[in-house]
Amino acid sequence: MKNRSHYVSGYKLLKIPYVIQSKTEQPKGLAIMLPGIGYTVKSPLFHFSSGAFLNKEYDVLHVNYPYYSTDYEDFSFEEITSALINDVSTVLNEVVNHTIYKSYYVVGKSFGTMAIPAVLDMLTTQSTKAIWLTPRLIDLSVFQTLKACKQGGLCVIGDKDPFYDAEKMNHIIMNPSIECMIPSDANHALEVDNDILKSIDTVKSVIKRIDDFITLKDRVLKS
C-alpha cells in the first residue's frame, strides 16, 4: 500500500496535513475521511472502514486537522467549525483538482459530519455518497442535509448518543436517499457502556453495514 503525505495552508494559514492511501493504480474512486476532534483516523470506525474502502479498490483520503493542538486553544467552537469547513474544502480543492476520480464517498464522525454538507455541495455528482457516523443532529445544516439531500447516504447513531433525537431521526428516516442504522444502547463512540463484548459486536455490525453500503452503491453505479 502506498501512503502519500501532504499538507495545505488552511484557516489563518495553519498547516492541515492529509494522507492519501492507495492499493491500486486504477482506483474506483476516493473515500474522504473526516474524523472527530478526539476520534482520529486511527480509531476503530475509521481504521476498519478505511480498510473496507481499500479492499474495494478505492483510494482513501485522511484529513488530519489538528484542532486539539495549542494553535486552536483560543478558538471558539463556532470559529473551529468555520476552520473545519474551510480546511476540508481547501484539501479537497487540491486533491480533486489533480485527479480524475469518478466517484466519491465522504465519511464523517461527529464533529467531522459538519463538513459533509459543504463536501456534497462541492462534489455534486450523484456518484458522491455520504456516511454519517454519530452526526451532530443539533447542527441545523447537518439535520437539514440529512432530511432533504438527494445523494445517497448511510446515517448511523446509537440511541444512547447525546446527539440522538428520535423526532429528528423520524424525519431523516423519511428521506428515501438515506439508510439509517440505530444500534441499541450505543453511545457516542458507537460502543455500549460497561460491556466490552457488546461494544465489539456493535462496532463489528456498523463496519459490516458500511461494507454492505459500499457494495450496494457500487452495484448501483455500475448498473
Rank of each mutant, 00 (worst) to 15 (best):
S69R: 09
D218M: 10
K160A: 09
T145W: 05
V63H: 07
S69H: 08
F48T: 01
L92C: 11
V88F: 10
T90I: 06
V203F: 01
T202R: 06
G153I: 06
T81V: 00
H98N: 15
F77V: 02
V203Y: 01
T40I: 04
D212N: 15
C155S: 07
Q126N: 13
S76C: 04
D74I: 01
A186K: 07
K15F: 00
V119P: 10
S177P: 03
E57P: 00
M174K: 15
E79D: 13
V220W: 11
T40G: 06
V91T: 09
N194K: 14
D59G: 07
D212C: 08
S43Y: 02
K28C: 00
I20G: 05
N175F: 09
T134G: 04
M169T: 03
D87M: 09
Y7Q: 14
K198A: 12
T90L: 12
T145F: 02
C155G: 01
A189D: 13
I210K: 01
I172F: 04
Y11T: 07
F163P: 00
A166M: 09
D121S: 14
K198D: 10
G112Y: 01
K204N: 10
M122Q: 15
I173T: 13
L61V: 06
V8D: 10
I207R: 07
V107P: 03
N194Q: 12
S89G: 08
Q151M: 11
V192N: 05
K2D: 10
S127H: 14
V106E: 03
M33D: 02
